[in-house]
């Protein structure tokens, strides 16, 4: 009996305390943050949707000449037409694959080259000094300025297209890697050295991972630049690729096909950047 009585009191006390507990007014910081994030996301989505709606309305109503801006539905129809019949006698898939092969071959090899040079230039002062003037001169020159030279040197075929893309990307990766190596805190290198690491081990376990965040930034910038150069390279010569579609459609004032080309490049650019970002977040998880 006594036990029961005391239990009751305990329950009563608990109830009373619950009743007396202060009522929270306003939102805590976490709720605020979540709300804000939700709102920001909505704004981010709303803007492009709005643009698309305005685009479709203005073009459907005929307020803008189809020659300057085709309607979205027109572009979609054109896309399906190209997808089923191909463009200029070549299946769409071949155009897409040709372009992607160029970009990713150049991007892959360019990243490797840039990475190696960047690591060496970042770590060895003398190598940096040796290449410094050359890179500083090359850096501000738009890679496209070299395109005719490349064609002159390497012919008008595949090689010069890939090389010009490769050059542009490699330079960016190299400069970023070099910065990353130089930003590696000196204590980390010295600590490794006092633990018995020699140059090769220091590269593999300290300098390379320390530079990874910079390397990924460089790779992302390089990839978007590579897509830009791709279109320009395909504008020049050849009969295959998304850049070729743009160029060919322009000559025949086929504005719908022109937009199909542009939007496809945008699509692959966005998707590959997204993938690269995903990989980067996985690999350099220790960064913020």
């Amino acid at each position: 009996m006594q036990l029961k009585a005391s239990q009751q009191t305990a329950q009563q006390i608990a109830q009373q305390t619950a009743a007396n507990a202060p009522k929270f007014k306003g939102q805590d910081l976490k709720t605020q943050e979540l709300r804000e994030r939700g709102l920001l996301f909505c704004v981010g989505i709303a803007m492009p949707v709005l643009i698309l709606i305005l685009w479709e309305i203005t073009t459907q109503q005929g307020w803008i000449d189809e020659l300057f801006l085709p309607s979205i539905s027109g572009i979609v129809t054109e896309f399906f037409a190209i997808a089923s019949k191909g463009y200029a006698g070549t299946p769409l898939m071949s155009h897409v694959l040709a372009s992607l092969r160029r970009v990713f071959t150049a991007f892959g090899v360019g990243t490797l080259v840039g990475l190696l040079l960047g690591l060496l230039m970042g770590y060895y002062k003398y190598i940096r000094a040796a290449f410094y003037v050359v890179t500083e001169i090359l850096r501000p020159i738009p890679p496209l300025a070299f395109i005719t030279l490349f064609i002159l040197w390497f012919g008008i075929g595949e090689i010069s297209k890939v090389l010009i893309i490769l050059y542009a990307g490699a330079l960016i990766v190299m400069l970023n890697t070099m910065e990353g190596v130089r930003a590696c805190p000196k204590q980390k290198i010295l600590a490794a050295r006092t633990l018995g690491a020699k140059d090769l081990a220091i590269f593999a376990y300290v300098i390379f991972p320390a530079a990874l965040p910079y390397i990924f930034t460089g790779m992302r910038v390089a990839l978007s630049v590579d897509f830009g150069i791709l279109v320009a390279a395909e504008l020049l010569a050849g009969d295959l690729g998304m850049g070729y579609i743009i160029q060919d459609a322009s000559t025949f004032f086929n504005v719908e096909a022109l937009f199909v080309g542009i939007l496809m490049i945008a699509f692959f650019g966005v998707v590959s950047d997204f993938l690269l970002r995903l990989i980067s977040a996985r690999v350099v998880h220790w960064q913020g």
Binding site: K188, L190, A192, L195, A210
Partner: peptide, 27 residues
């Protein structure tokens, strides 16, 4: 001759265990 710095000398990309075992890679 081991050295302990004031800070910022750990390898951020390695776990605690990997950091501690680092010197053993060369032994």
């Amino acid at each position: 001759r081991g050295v302990v710095f004031q800070g910022n000398a750990l390898f951020d990309w390695m776990t605690v265990e990997q950091n501690i075992a680092f010197g053993f890679r060369f032994q």
